[in-house]
């Protein structure tokens, strides 16, 4: 082992020794009942956990998208100017409805963060409908298909098998 590597390991050991590994807390956390956890303190998971009741179709979503999203993401969802969600998108390599590996994330993010200047203003039905429209425009659901907590996790996203989980593959080692 080179001196350099040894110095590196020594530095790491010192870091661990002083990382508060032995310390104990005063135990001041206040217990939370399930009803006391705010909605946006959780995210929707790929298996659909956390998806609320409600439903929507692309046909219903079209007018919501036109009124609340098109200004920033483009009338057809492909032109932007900001990060268009429909593929093939103009000058954008990661249109959400094509690039993202899980459709559930579209709901989680749209409900939590969009429209950009009025986040959390969409009802659950509106969010399902606008997500249905994005999926429909990407050819992933039919125009009248019901998108809800049951059907959304089942949508096969085309990029999923193309996405490598780097942490699973090689832990913390950079690519």
């Amino acid at each position: 082992m080179s001196t350099r590597n040894r110095a590196w390991i020594a530095a790491t050991a010192i870091a661990l020794a002083t990382s508060g590994a032995e310390a104990e807390g005063p135990g001041l956390g206040v217990p939370l009942a399930p009803g006391e956890i705010p909605r946006f303190a959780s995210v929707v998971l790929p298996d659909g956990a956390g998806l609320p009741p409600g439903r929507g179709t692309a046909r219903e979503g079209a007018s919501i998208y036109a009124a609340k999203c098109a200004r920033c993401h483009g009338v057809t969802g492909t032109e932007g100017p900001i990060q268009p969600p429909v593929a093939p998108a103009r000058q954008y390599a990661k249109p959400a409805g094509r690039h993202w590996p899980h459709a559930t994330t579209l709901f989680d993010y749209t409900k939590r963060a969009m429209p950009f200047d009025a986040p959390k203003s969409l009802s659950d039905d509106e969010a399902y409908a606008v997500v249905a429209w994005i999926l429909y425009r990407n050819g992933l659901v039919a125009e009248d298909e019901i998108v809800d907590a049951k059907s959304l996790p089942r949508v096969e996203m085309p990029n999923r098998s193309n996405t490598i989980d780097l942490y699973e593959r090689q832990g913390e080692k950079p690519y």
Binding site: L45, K94, H99, W100, N159, T163, L166, Y167, Y175
Partner: peptide
């Protein structure tokens, strides 16, 4: 398991030369 949130699905994924996508590249 990872939640695959918006940023780990889109903006902070890395596009490789062979067309594959890397997610959860932390370090």
């Amino acid at each position: 398991r990872p939640a695959h949130t918006k940023d780990e699905s889109g903006e902070y994924t890395d596009l490789l030369a062979d067309g594959k996508v890397i997610a959860l590249s932390f370090t």
